Amino acid sequence: MSNFRKWALALTLPAGALMLAFYVYPILQVLALSFTEPEPGLGNYAEMATNPAIRRVLWTTIEVTVPTTLLTVAGAYAVALALVQMPPRRRGLALFLVLVPFWISVLVRAFAWITILRRRGVVNSGLESLGLIEEPLSLIYNQLGVVVGMVHYMMPFAILLLYANLSDIDRSVIRAARSLGARRMAVFWRVWLPLSVPGLMIAALFVTIFSFGFLVTPALLGAGRVLMIAEYISVQITSTLNWGVATALSVTLLTAVGLLIFAATRHPALRSALEGGRK
């Protein structure tokens, strides 16, 4: 082994030790608790399969995650496509506006949506003043409010991911399509969109995984009526002290995310995008 490799290995040892101490060991503890609390066996996992409350929570998580992913990726793609078409100076301002939400606490954003969507909030008051509705709409403390808050939180991440992908598309391919007589919509559907598939897949994967573990936004905008898996785990640990079920759910969620990432990276388009990002 060369001196360079020895030094490289030595430099990675502290980081590896920290990873083992603060990440791997706690996960192993969670895994052990899921099989031993309150008694050894597979009882916690059996309860996950038979408990109707847990099945309802899992189904609610899927019902919220799917529209959140679709709306976030669609909206982020439109913004990212507009960004790559802008002049450099205007693009810099637009990217700044995209980054602004990163500096605002998730709590502040959630409470802002409560102010906007509540029965006497900005939206309902505006619609009533215009005569479009007679009674306030139920826009919050339900799945709609949770999806709105989660989409707003996820948009900057998805925009940046898709912007990086669209920026790498070779413009000569677009010019070649135009020179051959293709119209703008044909260029979009036959050139832009197919070349954007890796970025769309990465953004969708990121939003889906992040949505599985969402806690603060669903807890505030759902007000306990939209109980997702992360909040359910929190309740089991902090309120009911049901550590066995909570850790079993945590292990199941971690396994599902790991399998999802593994399956996604087996796709050639997504793998090529990830490899391209390392070059």
Rank of each mutant, 00 (worst) to 15 (best):
P26H: 08
Y163Q: 11
A15P: 05
Q29E: 09
T60D: 10
V191C: 13
V257D: 01
V79D: 11
L160C: 07
L81H: 12
L221V: 02
L58I: 14
L270H: 15
V122I: 15
I229G: 00
A21T: 10
M201R: 06
V64H: 05
L241Q: 00
Q143A: 07
S2A: 06
T240P: 01
R190G: 14
A204T: 11
T115I: 09
M19R: 03
L93S: 11
A186E: 15
V235A: 02
V146H: 09
T265E: 11
G258Y: 08
L241D: 00
R225C: 04
I116D: 09
A32K: 15
G258H: 03
T265R: 14
T65M: 12
D168N: 13
P268S: 08
M19Q: 09
R118W: 03
L95G: 09
K279E: 03
A204V: 08
G16L: 12
R171C: 01
L11T: 10
N3P: 00
V257Y: 00
V147D: 02
F212C: 12
S125H: 13
A17Q: 03
N142I: 01
G121N: 00
L20E: 03
N51K: 07
H267D: 12
V216C: 09
T115D: 09
A21F: 14
V79R: 15
V187I: 15
T115W: 12
L13E: 09
V151M: 04
L161F: 11
A15W: 08
Y23R: 09
L58W: 11
G224S: 07
F4L: 02
T252I: 00
S179N: 04
M155H: 03
V187P: 03
L253T: 06
A246C: 02
M155S: 05
W243Y: 11
T238F: 03
M150I: 11
L58T: 06
M19F: 14
V123M: 13
L220H: 08
G244V: 02
V123Y: 05
E128W: 15
V235L: 02
N51D: 13
L81K: 07
G41H: 13
E128Q: 15
G258L: 05
G277K: 04
A53Q: 14
Y163S: 04
A53L: 13
T265Q: 11
R55F: 01
A82S: 13
W59C: 04
T247L: 02
T265P: 03
S129I: 11
V151Q: 06
A32N: 15
A21C: 12
Y153G: 08
I62Q: 10
R118A: 04
L107T: 14
L195M: 15
K6N: 09
D168W: 08
Y25T: 13
A246E: 02
R5E: 10
A112M: 04
H267V: 15
T68A: 13
N3A: 10
L160F: 12
A263Q: 02
V24K: 01
R5M: 09
R175C: 01
G131S: 14
M155Y: 00
V73N: 13
V226C: 04
L160D: 06
L260S: 05
I54E: 07
L160R: 07
I104G: 05
A78F: 12
L137Y: 00
S196W: 07
R266T: 10
L33V: 14
P67K: 05
P268T: 14
T247H: 00
A204H: 12
G199C: 11
S172H: 05
